[in-house]
Design a protein around this nucleic acid. Structure first.
Lengths: 214, 214
DNA sequence: TCGAGCGGACACAGATTGGTTACAATCAAG
DNA sequence: CTTGATTGTAACCAATCTGTGTCCGCTCGA
């Protein structure tokens, strides 16, 4: 019913009865907004929301069972932008959808938190800019991606292989210098002495470690 | 009851039983948020909202009578940020309040101004006119749309794909230069040197970034 | 102490990417 | 229907980036 109504209102609507199917579809195609029913088979609404939130930047509206306060609180916690109690009143849903779409506000910004801060490094994912000790640092795409990757895992040793696979999106052949090189260039731009690195430490035989200030 | 609950939760709450009184109070004192019941004597919730909106920049949440769709639609139109059906469930209200306060989003920006300003650029959506450093700039439709799109997202890197999909309303095939071309022409008209752009920066491998003055 | 292995770094070259021009298709106004 | 503006496609070019190959120095274990 909701689907039909929105369709009449000029939205192009895709329905999905199963949670997992929805996750897949959202990953593959592009949508402006997602309306989620909590009580889905496969993967429930929360699950879908949690999974999809980091990838999907538009508004997510969750339909909760009537009067279930807990649901609503959880929904917001897993990154939904809004929730409505069932039974759904189409016009109200429409109003909300419009507000969110127009305003372009979404919880993704806070969930994914667009600035990663590690020590005196401040990495803004949205503007792809980096401040080191308050000073702006110009990085290339590959360098930025690497830095972001490491910074998000600050305090953990990341294997060279993982970095390679995740960043290059290629299978790892084992004899590769490209990550080292990226690190090398990155260190230079960040003013990190490779023999005595403060920020990105090498872990021999394993990979790298972005130092987290204690 | 709502008031008491929020008080317990650490909010400092001021109650007002009469609409006009509320308007006065909001004008005189400073509040972080406003929760409005539609069915107030004196001036009803809509009236309060309309009057107060231009002055008050925080979130306004409206409590509507159960299931009154029309109310909700109107509420949003007069500038409320959110609405909830009565009877009020305190925890849900709390959740919403927190979201709005944290996100700091409010309908005021769209209500009050219809011109997007970025640095010395002033883009009037209504009249589709653009001022750059006080000087009028003639743009074509496509150029204006692009500029507006970027300006609304100033400070964020927008993917070439998103621009394409949102502006052209076509699926993105990956090998497209039309956006680049638009950017190129736009830069020229705005007097932005492509090799050292001040306004629209290219982010290699990702997209474009409209520079926001810090 | 010596040697093997690993990581750092340089230079170069191929690849990718974005800017731009020219031209064709499309659109809009008269 | 004609004409001029607008917009996208194709093609070309230039710049930048990024990885491979390579060499060197350091580290660790024997």
């Amino acid at each position: 019913m909701v689907s039909d109504f929105l369709n009449e209102q000029g939205f192009r609507v895709t329905k999905e009865a199963d949670g997992q199917a929805a996750i897949d579809k959202i990953g593959r195609e592009t949508f402006d907004a997602v309306v989620l029913d909590i009580g889905l088979p496969g993967a429930d609404g929360f699950e879908v929301c949690r999974t999809v939130r980091p990838k999907f930047s538009g508004p997510i509206i969750v339909l909760t069972a009537r009067g279930e306060e807990i649901d609503e609180v959880i929904a917001l916690e897993v990154g939904a932008d809004d929730f409505m109690a069932k039974p759904v009143r189409p016009r109200a849903l429409l109003a909300r959808l419009k507000v969110h779409l127009r305003r372009g506000d979404t919880a993704i910004s806070e969930m994914v938190s667009d600035a990663v801060v590690v020590g005196d490094l401040r990495i803004d994912e949205k503007s792809r800019s980096v401040l080191a000790a308050g000073r702006n640092v110009e990085l290339t795409t590959a360098e930025f991606d690497l830095l972001l990757y490491l910074a998000k895992r600050a305090g953990k040793v990341v294997e060279r292989k993982s970095v390679y696979v995740d960043l290059l999106e290629l299978p790892y052949d084992g004899l590769d210098r490209s990550i080292d090189l990226r690190v090398s260039r990155l260190r230079r731009k960040l003013g990190d002495d490779p023999t005595q690195p403060t920020r990105i430490k090498s872990v021999r035989g394993v990979g790298y470690l972005m130092a987290k200030p204690s």
